[in-house]
Design a protein around this nucleic acid. Structure first.
Length: 292
DNA sequence: AAAGCTTACAACCGCGCAAGT
DNA sequence: AACTTGCGCGGTTGTAAGCTT
């Protein structure tokens, strides 16, 4: 499929944006709104490609952007989300109001990645289960040291955020006894999760799913608990295996969903064709050597 | 003070997906 | 069905600023 390179025009500016360019772009968007990025440069009087304008706006000029000073809480959330989602920065950023995917990606690559790696090394010591970081095709994220040997078996390759839903089934409600910030947790996993949920290929008639690939792995609810524990606790809590589904607050379900499915995990047609109710889709997150 | 090194981050690049024609 | 266009994503690069020697 042919496509013209976005910024191939020689007369277009590249590199750092000037204050004047910023001003022009802001003025244009304030007057006309964003979108139709390919038309923006001409209409705004900028010698930039539309893509560059979009990037500048989304990552830098938008008024609702918080920049710098990433808090400790945000750090922890990023780390946990990264453990869950891998390098899907847009998804992670979507859970952090005011943060952009680019900022989080940069922050990870320069700061958190190192911290997470160090943390993983500590936690890889014998005993409890280990956290497993989802590796990507680029190798930008390294797995915990203990799982090198099993990397080949468990590596998951996904690049697009939209693909996530086929692997991770949510939403989940933490047990009330768990001492974590459930309010923030719920806030962090609402609309987008349900939006993605509806795209779960397991829930339509297209038979090929990643979940199917993991179904035979024999995971049980203990593993579910371990995965959740690794994601949402700091290691000082224990999490029992009673994981309940959380119904969307506005009660709207899209076909083929129904309320019963949210009340009872086993109602999911994806999961009930064998007797083991589990989060098989989490299989890729845990080290097979440590399965109970 | 100067050179070399490291870090942080803005910006670019190529690709894939979805919608439109 | 084939192709084009627009958009969004993640990986990578370039470089300014800060730090160390």
């Amino acid at each position: 499929m042919g496509r013209n390179p976005c910024c191939s025009k020689e007369e277009l500016n590249k590199g750092a944006w000037t204050a004047l360019e910023d001003k022009l772009l802001i003025s244009y968007i304030q007057a006309h709104g964003d979108g139709q990025w390919s038309n923006v440069p001409e209409r705004a009087g900028l010698k930039r490609c539309g893509k560059s304008c979009r990037l500048r706006w989304l990552n830098y000029l938008r008024p609702d952007i918080k920049r710098g000073n990433i808090s400790h809480d945000e750090e922890e959330l990023i780390i946990r989300l990264h453990n869950l989602l891998g390098n899907r920065w847009a998804l992670i950023a979507g859970r952090l109001p005011g943060r952009t995917d680019n900022e989080i990606k940069n922050y990870w690559n320069t700061t958190l990645g190192k911290k997470a790696k160090a943390q993983a090394s500590i936690e890889a010591s014998p005993g409890k289960y280990t956290k497993k970081i989802i590796s990507t095709e680029s190798g930008a994220t390294e797995p915990s040291s203990s799982s090198q040997a099993t990397k080949a078996k468990t590596e998951v390759i996904r690049t697009r955020a939209t693909m996530c839903s086929s692997q991770v089934i949510f939403p989940l409600q933490l047990p009330a006894s768990l001492d974590v910030d459930v309010t923030n947790f719920e806030e962090s996993f609402d609309e987008a999760m349900f939006e993605d949920w509806t795209r779960n290929p397991c829930l339509n008639n297209n038979a090929t799913t990643d979940i199917d690939e993991h179904r035979d792995s024999g995971l049980n609810s203990t593993v579910e608990a371990q995965v959740l524990h690794s994601l949402y606790s700091d290691g000082s809590h224990s999490l029992n295996s009673e994981v309940n589904l959380l119904k969307p607050s506005d009660g709207e379900f899209e076909e083929p969903f129904d309320e019963a499915m949210f009340k009872d995990w086993t109602a999911d047609p994806c999961l009930n064709d064998n007797s083991t109710v589990g989060l098989e889709s989490f299989a890729f997150l845990v080290d097979p050597d440590e399965w109970p």
